[in-house]
């Protein structure tokens, strides 16, 4: 039964790792682009948030299922 907690923490941890790196790259590129063209700042920001929303899907699905495992399956 304890493997569920191990599995859940792995799911959350690896998902967070991927997202962390992904968002860091995304944010970095956005800052570079805004520095190069400040007038495009607002539009770049909305597009970055759209990408952030899309990028968020996979780790959040993992976190959702991990929480489901912890509280409902092994609750």
């Amino acid at each position: 039964m304890d493997y569920i907690y191990l599995a859940a923490s792995l799911m959350i941890g690896l998902g967070a790792l991927g997202t962390g790196i992904g968002f860091a790259l995304l944010g970095g590129k956005m800052l570079e682009a805004t520095a190069r063209q400040p007038e495009m700042g607002a539009e770049l920001q909305t597009k970055t948030f759209i990408m952030a929303g899309l990028l968020d899907a996979v780790p959040m699905i993992g976190v959702g299922i991990a929480m489901y495992l912890i509280f409902v399956v092994a609750g």
């Binding site: 959040m60 699905i61 959702g64 489901y68």
Partner: peptide
């Protein structure tokens, strides 16, 4: 699948 689970994952994790 990704459309539904993305919304579910975000909201469920936030609620917990």
């Amino acid at each position: 699948l990704s459309l539904g689970l993305r919304l579910f994952g975000n909201m469920f994790a936030g609620e917990v």
